[in-house]
Amino acid sequence: MSDGNTSRRVPWVAMSLSFLSAGIGHIYCGRIYKGLLLYFSWFVIPLSCFIAAFVEPSAGVLIGFVLLPVTLVMIIYLYAAFDAYEIAKRGGSDYELKDYNRAILYWLLIFVWLAYPISLIAGVREFVYEAFYLPTRSMNPSVVQGDRILVNKLWVQKQFPERGDVVVFRNPEPTGGRVFIERVVAVAGDRIVIKGDEVEINGKRLERNRIPLESLDGIRDQIDGDPFYESNSGKRYKVMYGDGPAAEIETDPIDIVVPPRNVFLLGDNRDRSRDSRHFGPIHAGDIIGHVDYIFYPTGNWSRFGVYRD
């Protein structure tokens, strides 16, 4: 880079290098350890997400182990650029070149930078958490259109789904979206009978209580039907009837026993959902993950945090 062994450290070059990938600006200025630490900051995200996926979901976990690390990496990226600028500025003109001050190293690090965080994020998305944006109303009033949710993918490794769980699964039909989000209503071995609006599990009719609209303030504009609390083996969750073209959704009465390793899924917006009533039970292996969080709710932020029934 220079004629002799000393060279000027140019502030804007340090900053540009740091923008190209955090930490290279520091390596350029001779701070290799700090530089490498900044450079590998992205590893914070998979590590903390992995921990978050294992512990009991809570708003604190979402903020501290998912959102904070992501924000932190962004702040580190910006900090690194300005810090590198300052170091170069203070460094003066007689910086003694280290043996790692080589353009080829910078190029290599930049090249890796453009790939490694993406691989980490893709890895998190593939195995730990995947974010989804809900384009449809099939889960109103539990999870509504426009919500951004975080699906825990490690969950399926840990346990078999239970009645009342909201899961994301691969669409078994060739038409429609790649994945669906719906609620497990019956599990393997259950006998489920559906006649019109009535759902019966193992001979017991699921009880419903009308929800006063006031308690749904945040998503009032998403409620076009009659919301109910439905009770199913000790769990209580929201469902809705009377929203939309019930006739299209109408199916023949169902009376089946859910096969082993299968689950029976229903969308909470019963009259606007395409689910196990149409394509039958779903194999547990087709379940991608469990809805843990609403990290970016549509409209009102009161529903931010752990997804609650």
Partner: peptide, 28 residues
């Protein structure tokens, strides 16, 4: 030119964040 270089570097180097935003479904 210095500002342009820095901004260009930012655009290239911040692309992983763009991908992150896409994965987080904030960008479609």
């Amino acid at each position: 030119a210095r500002w342009t270089a820095c901004m260009a570097a930012f655009l290239v180097g911040s692309s992983p964040f763009l991908y992150l935003a896409y994965v987080a479904q904030l960008l479609v």
